[in-house]
Each structure stands twice: as C-alpha cells, then as structure tokens.
C-alpha cells in the first residue's frame, strides 16, 4: 500500500536540480513521478523512481541531503470525480493530507500522498478496498 519516495533537499539555485538528475542518470535510475514546491530559498524535491533504495544510497554517496521514506500510492480509475470520492473517505475519517501528487500508470490515475495519521490511513484503504500500487509494478515499467 506504500511505496518508497526519495526526498532531496535542494537549494533554489540554477544547477542544483541538474546535479541530482545527473546522479540518477548515471546509475540508470528512471524517474516515474516527481514534484517540487516553489519556495524562496530551498525546496524538497520528491521523487518516485525505479530502484529507490539503490538511488538513495547513490545520492547519499554523492554527498546529497536525501531521505528515503514511505508514501501511500493508491490507484484510481480515470474518470471525473474519482479523486474526490477517494479523498472524501479520508476526510470523513478526520485524516488530513500533508501533500499529494499524481501520475498516470497504464491509464489509471495514481495518487501519491502522505497524511497526518498513517495507521488510520491504512485502515481506510483496506476497509474500502481501494486498489494500491506495489513497488514491483513501478520497477516493471522502468524496464
């Protein structure tokens, strides 16, 4: 129900994003989704990629501030209002979403998110039989 996400602390300066991307390119790591918020001075660059553990060690070795964590990734049919339905389940359980981003995988919408209560989130996903993404699926598409 969760997948690994890399979070990289980067400076809001020309070239810093490229440094991270070059490191990943050299190791043949494929980025599947990523997001970065617009802030004044620094940002957290969040990445879903193939072989996240390998990518994490690699970036660390290159002296980059990086953390590896788990985020929820649920799979939704791609039609208007589906995301609203899903999010409704969480909000009615009092769960708040810290951040969220999405991408398409085999025609399905994938929502990646972190909440303020992981336990409760797991319960909601299980009780409502929401489909979720496994990391292997991501590695497959990268091959």
């Amino acid at each position: 129900m969760t997948i690994h996400q890399l979070s990289v602390f980067i400076e809001n300066k020309s070239g810093t994003l490229l440094q991270v991307l070059q490191s990943l390119k050299e190791a043949n790591i494929q980025i599947i989704a990523s997001t970065i918020a617009d802030t004044q001075e620094y940002g957290i660059y969040r990445i879903i990629c193939s072989q996240p553990a390998k990518a994490y060690l690699l970036l660390k070795e290159d002296g980059i501030n990086v953390v590896l964590s788990e985020v929820f990734a649920i799979e939704l049919d791609n039609y208007p209002g589906r995301a609203a339905q899903a999010i409704q389940l969480f909000s009615s359980s009092g769960i708040s979403i810290n951040y969220m981003y999405s991408f398409l995988l085999h025609g399905k919408g994938i929502l990646v998110f972190r909440t303020n209560d992981s336990e409760k989130t797991r319960e909601v996903i299980a009780n409502n039989h929401l489909s979720f993404v496994e990391e292997e699926q991501l590695n497959e598409i990268a091959e």
Binding site: I10, E11, T16, E41, Y42, N65
Partner: peptide, 8 residues
C-alpha cells in the same frame, strides 16, 4: 538565515 544543502 539560509539553510543550504550539504556540500554547497
């Protein structure tokens, strides 16, 4: 005060 990445 400005936080910057390691090594910058």
């Amino acid at each position: 005060v400005k936080l910057v990445p390691k090594g910058s």
